[in-house]
Design a protein around this nucleic acid. Structure first.
Ligand SMILES: [Mn+2]
Ligand SMILES: [Mn+2]
Ligand SMILES: [Zn+2]
Ligand SMILES: [Zn+2]
Lengths: 141, 141
DNA sequence: ATCATACTGAAAACCGTTCGCAATCCCAGC
DNA sequence: GCTGGGATTGCGAACGGTTTTCAGTATGAT
C-alpha cells in the first residue's frame, strides 16, 4: 500500500527506499506531532532494521522537500507534522502536554501589519501559546 | 559600583559572590540579547577567572529569580535579556541578525481571546517574526 | 575570626542531532 | 531479468549547547 506521503515523495523525484516508505507511512498515519524518537519507535515496529540515523536523515529530507514541517514546541527536540495547506499554530496544555491546533486570520493579518509598520516583510514566524484548562485554573500544580 | 541587577539580586536574598556581581554588571549594561558565551566573554574581560560553567549556573539562577528572561530565537542557544515590566516580542532580520523589539496590546488581547475560546487560560506564550527589510525584499539571498 | 554552607572551576556526562565510512541498496540502462 | 555506479544505510564517533560531579574555596551569619 503506498501512503499519501510516499506518493508525494515519488512526485518530488525522491529515491524510494524501504526505510523511506516505512517512515512515510508512519508520518501519513500520524495525527499528532511526534519527535524523531517517536517516529523511529513507530517505524521500527513495522521494520526493526531502521536506524535512528536514517530517521533523522529522512526527516530532514522530507522537511527540505516540504513534505513535512518542523514544529518547535519549546521542549528541546524537533517535532514534525505533515505539511498542509492550512497554516496553524499550537496551544500546549502544560498540565497534560496535549496540543491543540488553531488558526486565526485576524492574528495573521495583525502580525503582517506589525512587520510592515516596522519596515519588514515577513519570511517566517512562530507562535505558541501555553495554557491550562479554564476549569482547572485554580488547581495546584 | 553596584549594578542594577546586583541590587535586585540582593533584594531577592541571593548570596552575592564576585562572579555574580560581574555577571550582574554585564547584564545590566547589555542592551542586546547575548547568549551565554557572549555573557562569558564580556564577564571574562572584567574578571578572567570566571568560568563558563558559573555563567551557565548564574543565568539559570537569575532566570529562576525572574531577574532576567530567557529568549529563544530559534538558533540553537538560549539568549537573555533583563526582565522588564514591559512585555514585548522580537522581529529578527534574517539578513543581518538584527533584532527589533515590538509590543502590541491588540495582539496580546487577541491571543488571550483565542485561548479563552479554546477553554484555556494562558500561562505563557511565544511569538517571533522573521523578516527582511521591505526595501530589500527582492534582493537575492 | 570561625564555621557550616553555598559556590566555584575543570572536566566529564548529557542529550538531541549530524557526520564519516564501509557495506548495501536502488533503479536506469542494457 | 541482470548489472554498475551513485545514492542510501547502519553503526559509532563527533558535535554543540548545557548540566552535573567533585574537590577546593569563598561567603556571610554568628
Ligand atoms: Mn500542528
Ligand atoms: Mn527583547
Ligand atoms: Zn501564523
Ligand atoms: Zn506577548
Amino acid at each position: 500500500m503506498t501512503s499519501r506521503l510516499e506518493a508525494l515523495c515519488v512526485e518530488k523525484g525522491l529515491k524510494m527506499t524501504g526505510q523511506r516508505r516505512v517512515i512515510s507511512q508512519v508520518l501519513s498515519e500520524a495525527d499528532d506531532h511526534p519527535d524523531v524518537e517517536e517516529v523511529h519507535r513507530r517505524a521500527a515496529s513495522i521494520d526493526p532494521r531502521i536506524s535512528i540515523a536514517t530517521v533523522y536523515r529522512t526527516m530532514r529530507l522530507l522537511e527540505d522537500a516540504q513534505v513535512i514541517e518542523r514544529v518547535d514546541l519549546g521542549d528541546g527536540r524537533a517535532r514534525y507534522e505533515e505539511a498542509s495547506a492550512d497554516h496553524h499554530h499550537h496551544l500546549i496544555d502544560t498540565r497534560t502536554g496535549r496540543i491543540i491546533e488553531f488558526a486565526s486570520p485576524e492574528l495573521e493579518a495583525m502580525k503582517e501589519r506589525i512587520a510592515r509598520e516596522l519596515g519588514y516583510k515577513i519570511v517566517g514566524h512562530r507562535l505558541e501559546i501555553y495554557g491550562v484548562p479554564l476549569d482547572e485554573e485554580d488547581e495546584r500544580q
